[in-house]
């Protein structure tokens, strides 16, 4: 019994440790004060109003959505194609190539950022949406690859062979069999890609110009300039959006699973 209690206490403390920053910031989104500190004098939605009316914040939200959507599309297509290619076991150095795809996950973002800036400058893509989307895609692709490879590994290869023998061309096999079966993995990958883009600051600092300030970038700079509770409101939006997307994916996946 004391052991059980100790376990429970330990688990609670770990969870508290993980969510403490959230607990610290979220209430401040509803403060009426102009500075980001406790205690909260009274409750108000003025900072959400600020978020949606102030030009800088509105643009930031808009930019995040554009760049997030672009990154999601690009990373999902590239990552899915890469995973399909990596299925070919006869491919030389298959293991090494897979590791290469996952490298951006572990390479320090600062290093990637510097490299990216030099490279994009060469193509004249710094300070452009395309540049930021490309940079975000580099860090988002590994998440898609991991997720889609997992889904593809669960497909019995013979199901695809059977489809071929029944008269389906390789393109039709992909469209009617492989893709639908890998869809849960592709969707999870897409969500992770969007989340990665939404959250990315370091690369954005290196490659984005003033016109591509994303929400994360805007929060980062505004906390240095003026400690306005609008940051807390933005953080609140972030968390709510993330939870909603997560729920949607769980729901969709269970729907797919039920159809099986």
């Amino acid at each position: 019994m004391p052991m059980k209690l100790a376990k429970f206490a330990f688990a609670s403390l770990t969870i508290l440790f993980l969510v403490a920053p959230l607990i610290a910031i979220l209430p401040l989104a509803f403060t009426s004060s102009v500075i980001l500190t406790y205690p909260i004098p009274s409750w108000s939605l003025r900072w959400f109003e600020e978020l949606f009316t102030a030009d800088a914040w509105r643009r930031a939200i808009f930019n995040s959505l554009i760049i997030g959507t672009g990154t999601t599309l690009l990373a999902t297509v590239l990552g899915t194609a890469a995973s399909l290619g990596l299925r070919n076991r006869l491919l030389f150095f298959c293991g090494s190539i897979r590791t290469l795809f996952l490298l951006p996950m572990v390479v320090p973002a600062v290093v990637l950022g510097v490299g990216m800036q030099v490279l994009l400058a060469g193509f004249g893509l710094t300070n452009s949406y395309a540049g930021v989307i490309i940079a975000h895609t580099v860090v988002a692709v590994p998440f898609v690859v991991v997720s889609v490879i997992g889904a593809l590994a669960g497909i019995d290869e013979r199901v695809e062979l059977a489809a071929q023998s029944l008269g389906a061309s390789p393109a039709t096999v992909f469209r009617r069999v492989t893709l639908p079966l890998a869809m849960p993995g592709v969707l999870s990958g897409a969500v992770l890609a969007f989340a990665t883009s939404l959250d990315e600051v370091v690369l954005t600092l290196f490659v984005a110009g003033p016109n591509q300030r994303t929400l994360a970038r805007q929060m980062f700079s505004s906390i240095r300039e003026n400690i306005s509770p609008a940051i807390a409101a933005a953080a609140f939006l972030f968390i709510v959006a993330t939870i909603l997307i997560g729920l949607a994916v769980v729901l969709f996946r269970s729907m797919l699973a039920k159809r099986r």
Partner: peptide, 27 residues
């Protein structure tokens, strides 16, 4: 393969798990 017009039956059945029985046979 897809132009050979041969039906193949595998030990593992290899049915399309995302389609109904009718859709499988209609494929």
């Amino acid at each position: 393969t897809h132009k050979r017009d041969m039906g193949v039956v595998f030990q593992s059945y290899a049915l399309f798990p995302h389609m109904s029985v009718g859709e499988n046979v209609a494929f």
